[in-house]
Design a protein around this nucleic acid. Sequence first.
DNA 1: ACGAAAGGTCGAACCGGTTCGACACGTCGA
DNA 2: TCGACGTGTCGAACCGGTTCGACCTTTCGT
Lengths: 341, 341
Amino acid sequence: MVNIGDVARAAGVARSTASYALTGKRAVSDEVRERVRLAAMELGYTPNAGARALATSRSNVIGLLAQFLPDEFAPAMLQYLQGVTDTARDLGYDILLSSDADGRSALKRITDSRMVDGVVLLNVAEDDDRLPVLRAAAQPGALVGLPRDCTGVDVFDLDFEEAGRTMVEHLARLGHRELILVSQPEHVVERGGAYVWRLQNAALEAAAAKGITLHTVFGAATQPDIGRDLHALLDAHPSATGLLLNNEAAAAALPTVLRSRDLDAPADLSVIGRYSDEFARTFSLPYSSIESAPDRLGRMAVRQLVRRIEKQVPEGDPYVVRFVNPELVDRGSTAAPATRQ
Amino acid sequence: MVNIGDVARAAGVARSTASYALTGKRAVSDEVRERVRLAAMELGYTPNAGARALATSRSNVIGLLAQFLPDEFAPAMLQYLQGVTDTARDLGYDILLSSDADGRSALKRITDSRMVDGVVLLNVAEDDDRLPVLRAAAQPGALVGLPRDCTGVDVFDLDFEEAGRTMVEHLARLGHRELILVSQPEHVVERGGAYVWRLQNAALEAAAAKGITLHTVFGAATQPDIGRDLHALLDAHPSATGLLLNNEAAAAALPTVLRSRDLDAPADLSVIGRYSDEFARTFSLPYSSIESAPDRLGRMAVRQLVRRIEKQVPEGDPYVVRFVNPELVDRGSTAAPATRQ
DNA sequence: ACGAAAGGTCGAACCGGTTCGACACGTCGA
DNA sequence: TCGACGTGTCGAACCGGTTCGACCTTTCGT
């Protein structure tokens, strides 16, 4: 394999000069630079990543810790991955992917061995056990998901409170007085998915403020259970005119449920979901929804992480907690209320 | 950061001895080994990955080249990723993920810089442009998907021919005489998805051998187009009693189509798909299907790749082309034919 | 009792980059 | 004319591991 010594010899200069010519870290005469570049080109020289990492203590690799949970929806996860990998590549970084169930040890391994310059954590739970490991690491970290304690890391998440308010207020404005909110199953909440509470509590507050009745329930995350749940709900609250879905499985199951009850959205029932546009397309869901923007969140996390790695953060490097504003994508599934059969 | 010199000093031995004690590559007295281990533990020593890679020319990282295509179904892709990452971790390797649209340059970069010890390629097309780059690389490669030319690489894929035969013969055995096969859209084939032909041709042959009529069509990959396609098909071939789906979008859309035509599987129509069990669960599809086993393929590819990296291949290292036997998962959607409407 | 073999440890070199300090040269100002 | 300075190049050291050959015991066979 050709190394920088070979290039230097071919160009008739010292190894250090070849290095400076290629990295541009010191001034080199135009003539020498050209000669070195040419030699490198002709010999097909590519710097050895390990050697460079050893010398610079920078690997140009970002660690990505994801957890492929069985009740997490695959399309959304893939969008996170895509947002992260694409952005990293644009900024000159490669991605080391870990989907290890034991995120703690994986994180410790890749940071302690200096394989990565920084880390992005996905699926961050309220009391995520990877956080202590991350704080002890020498490298910076960016999270997607809001933990209880945000010190020492940059955090990015959807503004679930605003999402809850938006859903309720949108239907309130149309004249609805009784709504149902279907959340993720309880075990997601127990695992630390506090965003479920954040959305639900904000929705309840908004409903109270408007004098609206809001029934809240946890739905199953799997078919056909969630279908049964939906049927039971519609039976239990015959006068409700709006359905809010913070539960992707519920959204995917709803078309079938509505058809079998011979109901139409929005004629008989107004519906608003909370999922990504990609998700809506995959399942061809006709419901308006709060865009959860996984690709965007992944992109933001990597951007900030790289800024921190490259020390481009302003003085005193204040850690950020940034919420993406929920955007309501109108797919025409809401209208003024009609009394259901 | 603590390095092996610190450990050696704490244990009162030479650096080389500390290395031997930790790696076990030379005999070391029990007493010294224990002292070194203890010192390493107490100091919290972790070897520097770059330095180790430089010295051993092995990184313990496997490159994973995936392409997140818009018409590829996300759940399946995620299963490949999971199969690959999990297996790699079990064998002591980390995963460098690239989803770069330009697979060629990504592949060249990670191999030339020796960041990876080997590479797994997903979505391999018949004339994949990454293959020449891979063959020129110093590291071994394993493919998921069958290219035209398999020299120099290990190849793993579902046996699509056998899958086609199995589908047809299963329905033939039940007494069906006229079937419809819905394949992936033509642009998938053009992109190099030769597996579409492999399944279809084998199915046609099997049908001919049994004296069965088999209508073949390419379906759309998106909703709601594929729904229209299915309706048109059922209109066009009213006497067909069986539906074979080598098109995931079609499988996902079928329940809605059947319901709106008031048809039931298998009472009115027998149905066999070709997708993974995970996919069936995500969309709660009630159709029997040929398991496409993405996780298993990912696992096999990594296993073989690691064997090659670690030179555990038998003499003369013959490259393998291994087909996974298609397994028919019975979900009760096939029965003896009944005349439709 | 002696030499060979085996077992255990050490020092030094090496992997392939980067980076620091020194130095040679040419230019400019006093 | 001399010194200060800036520019471009070089040699050497360093990053943190691994590995080779040499050396020193100890053990064993004869």
